[in-house]
Amino acid sequence: MDNFFLWLGMGLFFLVLLCLYRGVFGPGVLNRVAAISAIGTKTLVILLIMGYIYQRVDMFVDISMVYALLNFLGTITVAKYLEMSGEI
């Protein structure tokens, strides 16, 4: 089962790399924000899987929860800022 978690985490890492293409080259700031939000979602699952690999889920679940929270907050704040400035 540890091997399965390892492969799953590596697959998710590969997906994060794919998302990073949009984050770096994606035209405009909006595409970048969407890509970073998607990366944050995947990171949350990767953190929990890391917790299972290191046998410390009770610790990693707190970090994962903070990550989910800050991901949401960051997206909302950037969206609000773009909306107030009125241009991309």
Binding site: L30, S37, T41, L48, V61, M65, A79, L82, G86, E87
Partner: peptide, 27 residues
């Protein structure tokens, strides 16, 4: 706790999608 993160994401993900798309529309 893990299930609670799931519930949180279930509420947060559509909302942040809505927020960012709304910013795009207003821009």
């Amino acid at each position: 706790k893990i299930l609670f993160i799931a519930v949180f994401m279930f509420l947060a993900q559509p909302t942040s999608t809505h927020a960012i798309s709304r910013a795009a529309m207003r821009c």
